[in-house]
Amino acid sequence: MAEMVLETRDLTVRFGGHVAVNGVSTGFRRGELTAIVGPNGAGKTTFFNLISGQIAATRGRVLLGGADISRKSAADRTRLGIGRGFQMTNLFPDLSVYENVRLAVQAQQRKGGRILRLAEADDKMRDRTVAVLDRVQMGPEAAKPVSTLSHGDQRKLEVAMLIALDPAIYMFDEPTAGMSPDDAPVVLDLIAALAQDRRKCILLVEHKMDVIGALADRIIVLHNGTLVADGDPAAVMASDIVQEAYMGRRRADV
């Protein structure tokens, strides 16, 4: 079995009296797409935040390639190869679609410190930006300000930003939430294509069981912040705990 590229050890965070993620120890391999499921408020997004550094753990560690990154900033974790996508659309609203992607490309190419060159004159950045926009089929939208995009296009752009970062580890947090049946397959196809790359490790929070069934190599289940099941999709989906957890579900996270 391939070694773990990303691991969590006893990862825990407490908000006041509420333990949102509770002692989660697990690991993720290259070439593996892991679906993370659980009801609303189970702690999936918080688990992501702990891994990508948006919040600090109360207890426990995050290891990347065996090295402890628990004390590193979100920016540094991204630079180390953790690409984090957000459940709530989280873009640069007054900038154009092109500029949003270009900023991610620029970050990936480590060019943010250049102060006397022109951002627009860099062919390498432009070519990569155009390629990424093509890949999410958003070329025609390039010049639009993000705030004028439909929800579906904003979600696609969210995925484009991640692709632009070219991370070793992709973290998708409900990438198709609220998307129309027309738009969702575009995003899911992209994720499926990424999953073909055996060097990439993909974490996917998703509710739709058919999607998970089609994409996931493995499922882990969070419930009240605790990891309650972990295994191959068919077995986990058939388990009592998942049946129970999903019986009560009424609506997708917002």
């Binding site: 920016a75 989280n90 609203p93 900038l95 970050a107």
Partner: peptide, 15 residues
């Protein structure tokens, strides 16, 4: 980018 959304600027790797 920082003016627009500092949280996201950090998340895509800018300190």
């Amino acid at each position: 980018a920082i003016r627009e959304n500092d949280f996201r600027a950090e998340a895509i790797g800018y300190r």
